[in-house]
Design a binder for these strands. Structure first.
Length: 433
RNA sequence: UCCCCGGUAGCUCAAUGGUAGAGCAUUCGGCUGUUAACCGAAGGGUUGCAGGUUCGAGUCCUGCCCGGGGAGCCA
């Protein structure tokens, strides 16, 4: 018995192989059956005639969608078969047959969003979803490979934290630690600032949580973020690292997940263009572009979805916007020495309306200034004592950023909604399954 | 939290205030190259919930529940 997978079946033309998987579809034409099997690596059409294999024919005829099976057959190339190869069945073992009075809920047709999300555990089996998950995995692999290759050390940040990283957003409170409130982290950044002072160049990559009442196709309550941080790095260093990282992720997906992008019908020409350097504009220039397009945003205001769409549509690759007004950025942002009303921070906007995929910049390294900012933002000093310590013992200029994984993958995949690019999305009003 | 949209068969959707339907799925029958196969037949309904208007409500009104999109906020 030659056990193989569907993606490797082309190596075994003319040979008898065994494949383990599930029935994806069954078509019938008189005394011929055309079952399509899937095994996670792809789809393959089987064929069996009643005349040649009556017992196999009867078993296959009774099969229901998503029944689990072990099938054996002869591999042969056939242009009429989807995928180019066909399996002439010689044997079949049914592991579990889905009962016909309780059929697999996901049909090969359009479904509504609510239904699909309620059946996410089964929806994941469909070709579009498996393609997305493969691209997500490739994006993660590429991102970690790139960071490792640049000398960054993985130092993951804690999930439970004693205080807000940025103070403003709503946090999930955890009632467990005695005498002290705890929260689920909304960013690992503060902790990589500590490990950067230990190791030089570091990054963390893990889930983050935002208890915002955000109901849009760009938001999840639980999402993954990759956050590099480097001692002695400045704003320019991080803008360059960000564009190299994003380019590397996109080019790796193009190189290794072409088939999956085809499944998604993604226009890959838009992705081919994603190579350094990315356009860089200042906040001042962004305001000028917006005003030229009749947008009413005034200097000092932050950008919303409309503004991001106008700005990103000016370019064929992600655009970096830097030096925002300090007043609309986080408390820890280093002021621009040339113009102290500006912060040395940047955002990267994905093309095609997918929004902000990176936010970052230089951190305040001066103890007194940081303490003043903490107080101005009414943040609990006690919880930030360790963070202030980083400015008492060998403080250095340092910078970093956070890359939102799901927004990045949603953009690469061209999905309508971010919820499709994480196996089990957590959103406002949705925790099941 | 606010604004907009929606909820009818397992799924996707129709139905001028007047007998609740279709396609898909399921079951049965037909077809030796099917491509979301096709052809024929059958079963399948507390129209989200509670009130109200009316001779009569899926349809109109009020409240509630659930979901979607967006704003704010953010990656």
């Amino acid at each position: 018995m030659l056990l193989t997978t569907i993606e490797d079946v082309g190596r075994y033309q003319g040979q008898q192989v065994t494949i383990r998987g599930w029935l994806y579809n069954l078509r019938e034409s008189g005394k011929l059956l055309f079952p399509i099997f899937r095994d996670g690596t792809g789809l393959i059409q089987g064929v069996v005639s009643q005349k040649e294999h009556p017992a196999v024919f009867e078993t296959v005829r009774e099969l229901t969608q998503e029944s689990s099976v072990v099938v054996t057959g002869i591999v042969r190339a056939d242009a009429r078969a989807p995928g180019g190869y066909e399996l002439a069945l010689t044997g079949i073992e049914v592991i579990q047959r889905v009962p016909e009075n309780d059929p697999f809920p996901i049909q090969r047709k359009e479904h509504g969003v609510d239904f699909l999300l309620s059946h996410r555990h089964l929806w994941l089996r469909t070709p579009r979803q498996t393609a997305i998950l493969r691209i997500r995995a490739e994006a993660i692999r590429a991102a970690r490979n790139f960071m490792d290759s640049q000398g960054y050390i993985l130092t993951d940040s804690p999930i439970f934290t004693p205080a807000a990283c940025e103070g403003t957003t709503t946090l999930f409170e955890v009632d467990y630690f005695e005498d002290e409130k705890a929260y689920l982290t909304q960013s690992g950044q503060l902790y990589v600032e500590a490990t950067a002072a230990a190791l030089g160049k570091v990054y963390c990559f893990g889930p983050t949580f935002r208890a915002e009442k955000s109901k849009t196709r760009r938001h999840l309550t639980e999402f993954w973020m990759l956050e590099p941080e480097a001692a002695f790095a400045r704003l320019d260093d991080m803008m360059e690292l960000g564009e190299q990282l994003v380019s590397h992720i996109v080019q790796s997906v193009l190189a290794h997940r072409r088939r999956e992008l085809d499944t998604l019908k993604r226009d890959t020409a838009r992705l081919e263009a994603v190579r350094p350097p990315f356009p860089r504009i200042t906040y001042d220039e962004a305001i000028a572009i917006l005003q030229k397009h009749g947008n009413p945003t005034r200097w000092g205001e932050d950008f919303g979805g409309d503004e991001e769409t106008i700005l990103s549509s000016q370019f064929d690759r992600p655009v970096i916007i830097h030096r925002y007004p300090a007043a609309i950025k986080a408390f820890y942002m280093q002021p621009d020495p040339q113009r102290p009303e500006l912060a040395l921070g940047f955002d990267m906007l994905a093309p095609e309306g997918y929004g902000e995929i990176i936010g970052g910049g230089e951190r305040i390294s001066d103890y007194d200034l940081l303490l003043r900012r903490l107080r101005e933002n009414n943040l609990p000093e006690e919880a930030f004592r360790w963070y202030l310590d980083l400015r008492r013992y060998g403080s250095v200029p340092h910078a970093g950023f956070g890359l939102g994984l799901e927004r990045t993958v949603a953009w690469i995949c061209g999905t309508e909604h971010i919820r499709e690019v994480i196996p089990f999305p957590r959103m406002l009003y949705r925790i099941y399954p």
